[in-house]
Nucleic acid binder design. Structure first.
Lengths: 203, 203
DNA sequence: ATTATCTATAGATCTATAGATAATGC
DNA sequence: ATTATCTATAGATCTATAGATAATGC
């Protein structure tokens, strides 16, 4: 029973960590804030995760697991642990889904931003992750469209843009949700990728 | 003369601040690190800028000035103080230029990421800035293409994507410069916007 | 025994204020 | 006088370690 309780506790801690990171980033997050949110002292929290960095790593691993079937905000939406098959249509609904999970999107957008700084503990995670996501998306696109998408790009070149658009839209949307229709804009981009044939004003 | 010296000092301090933020983000940056870089004590630094936040604000204002003719990394490249006229072609060279200024790109990418967190002193700056940049770009696109771009999008909808692609590519590029050809990818996107007529494999 | 939490605390930092000292400009 | 810097330091935090105490599981 203690084992089960323990797992619940850990899950609660990770959720709280996610929230605190969304609000303050990793560097700005404090063990005290996370502990308070789960009703523990800061030292009590360290019983479950020995260091602050261990807490971040656990959050990232958690996301990796989830993502291989959920779509991680910052990382371009869908993790591709094993080159998961995203069809273009599904990507659209993933973005719609993300638009309903601002906390997670914010957590990963904040982490992505921090991760480009020196010695950031999430840097390697994101670097590796993006490599995977780009490769997975390219493979999917190739399977669906062959070596040239309707818009004229190779799957590899389209994949970089796909990920870039997802991330970039998230920042604009987080900063000004009223002004930016994230799913709509992403749909526009898919239209461009699918080329003239799929375009709304196709001749 | 003291006035002139003072201005040089301030400029040096702002450059140092930019570098330190690139390395550690704003929250991770310390007055001590900036001071050391310009050969002052932390307290000596505070003689020029009374608080840490004042230092950040000065960096942002500086960028705003510069940008209204230079292109601010994170903010989608070119600031549009007064709806500066960027033609699509010029945007391409702006991205090429950014690819040669990794420090500035990193500073603004780190700040953009942090800015989505609560109470971040750069949040309003970025929100306002993006609104301006989107509007400026849309106006430029409209002047150049009318109400519908070759790719089929309205200038407004294309503008969001343009900014998103610039920002998103910066993160992927910063994390893995070898793997991501930022200017090349941006060129691909411009090709999509310009539609079939401009596409490499146009029929 | 092991697990879960707590109190106490060491050891680092960090920002910002106070006040002294030297140099510069009028 | 004003400007530029420095030393000293207050006051907050923060992470992490040490060690006690209570509860749980075998």
């Amino acid at each position: 029973m203690a084992r089960a309780r323990s797992e619940e506790r850990r899950a609660g801690i990770l959720r709280a960590t996610l929230e605190v990171i969304a609000e303050r980033g990793y560097r700005g997050a404090t063990l005290g804030a996370v502990a308070e949110r789960v009703g523990l002292t800061q030292q009590g929290l360290l019983h479950y995760f020995p260091t602050k960095e261990a807490l971040l790593v656990a959050v990232l691993e958690d996301r990796d697991r989830w993502d291989t079937g959920g779509g991680g905000a910052g990382s371009g939406g869908g993790g591709e642990g094993e080159e998961k098959a995203w069809r273009l249509e599904l990507l659209g609904s993933l973005v719609e889904y993300n638009a309903m999970r601002p906390v997670i999107v914010q957590t990963f957008s904040a982490l992505l931003g921090e991760s480009v700084t020196e010695d950031h503990p999430a840097r390697e995670f994101f670097t590796r992750r993006y490599t995977q996501v780009r490769a997975g998306m390219a493979a999917t696109l190739r399977a669906e469209y062959g070596d040239t998408l309707p818009g004229g790009l190779s799957p590899e070149r389209a994949a970089v843009l796909l990920v870039a658009v997802m991330d970039g839209l998230q920042y604009q949307w987080l900063l000004d949700p009223e002004a930016v229709d994230m799913p709509g804009a992403f749909g526009d981009f898919l239209g461009l990728l699918k080329g003239p044939s799929g375009g709304p004003e196709a001749p």
